[in-house]
Design a protein around this nucleic acid. Structure first.
Length: 301
DNA sequence: AATGGTCCCAACCGCGGACAG
DNA sequence: TCTGTCCGCGGTTGGGACCAT
């Protein structure tokens, strides 16, 4: 039985907006005792609410570490960037924005950011130009398997991440070629099967300009990661502190962050994003070692 | 001033996963 | 293995605020 929130079925439980008195009771209780089991909080705190309601109120409003006020443009840029990688995983996005809640970010996305992206001609779901999405492109994510596919001519495929030396999948370069894969073997990258000259663009800013360890059948050139090419703004890139926070090794080590790898074909120059494997798996499974691998990939480049 | 439409946010709902017995 | 319970997440909604007419 899934919906067995017994507390919700009890009589006389209040719903709707919280009164200041209720807030005070909850705040006082959790400050003194911690929340412990949420289901027991309302009783112990003297509230006629269910545990879920208390939990939500605490997380979204009463928590002392919450940042109040409007989102900065840097925060909004970061949300867009994270959404491009994580999709609607609001809690994971929120985990990377200190003091912000998933609910807050979700509301901002639905009420504001979506609109802004559309105005810029970017599809808020795929993060691609609307002109591309208007066709029959229908990107889908299969969360229960390792597949990551798209209808139309944009065919993604993903390799089973059983071996971390074999984890990158790149979008195929044209309609006539078969799907191609790319791999990272330790610090080296091998790319095979590309029929067109390809550009690999890492979203991770390179730390130096030493030669790349990429090898492959076709010439591969690394280009600077640019946010503005996709979203027309450099504001957050101009903020070194935020950028440092986002890309510092410590940050990557502490957060399960999956870095997208952009692949560009010289022929059509459409920018696309490839993922190591399905988003849910990547977010749940991607280990720190792999993050380091991705990070050093960016560093090496 | 009244009304209707839109926007935005807080809170609820329903689901799936984890876990204990 | 099954069942019940709890927790957390993402989607949805109710209602207040704001704006245009």
């Amino acid at each position: 039985m899934k919906r067995s929130h017994s507390c919700c079925y009890k009589q006389k439980l209040r719903k709707g907006l919280w009164s200041p008195e209720e807030d005070e009771k909850l705040l006082n209780y959790i400050t003194k005792h911690g929340h412990g089991s949420w289901s027991s909080v309302p009783k112990l705190a003297g509230l006629q609410r269910c545990g879920k309601s208390c939990r939500l109120r605490w997380i979204n409003y009463l928590r002392p570490d919450l940042k109040r006020g409007a989102f900065s443009s840097e925060e909004q840029d970061l949300i867009v960037e994270l959404h491009a990688v994580l999709g609607n995983r609001w809690s994971q996005i929120a985990a990377r924005l200190p003091g912000r809640t998933d609910n807050e970010i979700k509301n901002l996305w639905n009420s504001c950011i979506k609109k802004k992206l559309r105005q810029k001609g970017i599809d808020p779901i795929t993060h691609k130009p609307l002109s591309e999405v208007d066709g029959d492109t229908n990107i889908s994510f299969n969360h229960s398997s390792t597949s990551f596919s798209s209808e139309s001519n944009q065919d993604f495929f993903v390799k089973e991440p059983s071996d971390f030396s074999d984890y990158l999948a790149f979008q195929k370069q044209d309609t006539n070629s078969v799907s191609q894969s790319s791999m990272i073997d330790g610090s080296s990258v091998s790319i095979s099967g590309f029929e067109t000259q390809s550009y690999v663009k890492s979203s991770i800013p390179p730390r130096d300009n030493t030669s790349s360890t990429i090898s492959g059948e076709d010439h591969v050139q690394v280009i600077e990661p640019t946010w503005e090419s996709n979203f027309g703004t450099t504001s957050h890139l101009d903020n070194p502190s935020l950028e440092e926070m986002k890309w510092s090794e410590e940050y990557l080590n502490e957060s399960l962050f999956l870095n997208p790898v952009y692949v560009k074909s010289e022929t059509d120059f459409d920018s696309n994003i490839a993922f190591p494997w399905s988003q849910s798996q990547a977010c749940d499974v991607i280990p720190k070692d792999l993050q380091r691998m991705v990070f050093s990939f960016g560093q090496t480049l």
